[in-house]
Amino acid sequence: MTEIVAFDNVVKRYPGGKLALDRVSLSLARGEMAFLTGHSGAGKSTLMKLIGLIERPTRGRVVINGTDLARVSRRQVPRYRQRVGLIFQNYNLLFDRTVFDNVALPLVIRGQAHRDITRRVRAALDTVGLLSHEKKFPITLSGGEQQRVGIARAVVNRPHLLLADEPTGNLDPELSADIMRLFTRLNETGTSIMIATHDIDLVEAMRYRRIVLDHGHLEQA
């Protein structure tokens, strides 16, 4: 099994009738990094939500790391999500906790021992270059730094798959390039990464596969 993400004829129709994804079949190889692009409303977010089990497909099959998501019951969703690293456009940090506590959250949720938490949070912060900021509160950081905290939080659990939904949407080009370089480095250490973005310039500057969505249809790039 070499695929970490496999979509097979996936249809997603929202209540109210809007067809967000129409018979989409795609795959991401283990250790691969790919961009998911398309105009806004093309179905990028819906695709990400299906992988994060925030939504369920209307028809078709989604298999992540060998797990058919249709078999993941509502009770099992938390355990499943602990194995997927999610990165958001608006960072989704908790502003009443320090950088350290934000990054530690996935480990606390998994009930890791205190010793391990400290070690792994430091390692994750070191990876994103924010080790010296661990005692600060997110509000005192720049947008680029906040997103790096978000990335540290996503990788601290060593997930087999990283999903980033418009991670550079709120950042200027220079900071965006920084973040992309960070993803490249993470990918080089073996993490599979799927990045949804509409920043075409940035994507074209990098040599990675593009998955293009257009009105819910997959375009062969």
């Binding site: 938390p78 999500r81 602990q82 997927v84 999610l86 989704n92 908790l94 996935p106 949720i109 998994r110």
Partner: peptide
């Protein structure tokens, strides 16, 4: 918002 984020990070209802 905090609860939503925790659920996205895989927190169980009990947690």
């Amino acid at each position: 918002q905090e609860i939503e984020v925790m659920k996205l990070l895989g927190a169980s209802d009990a947690f």
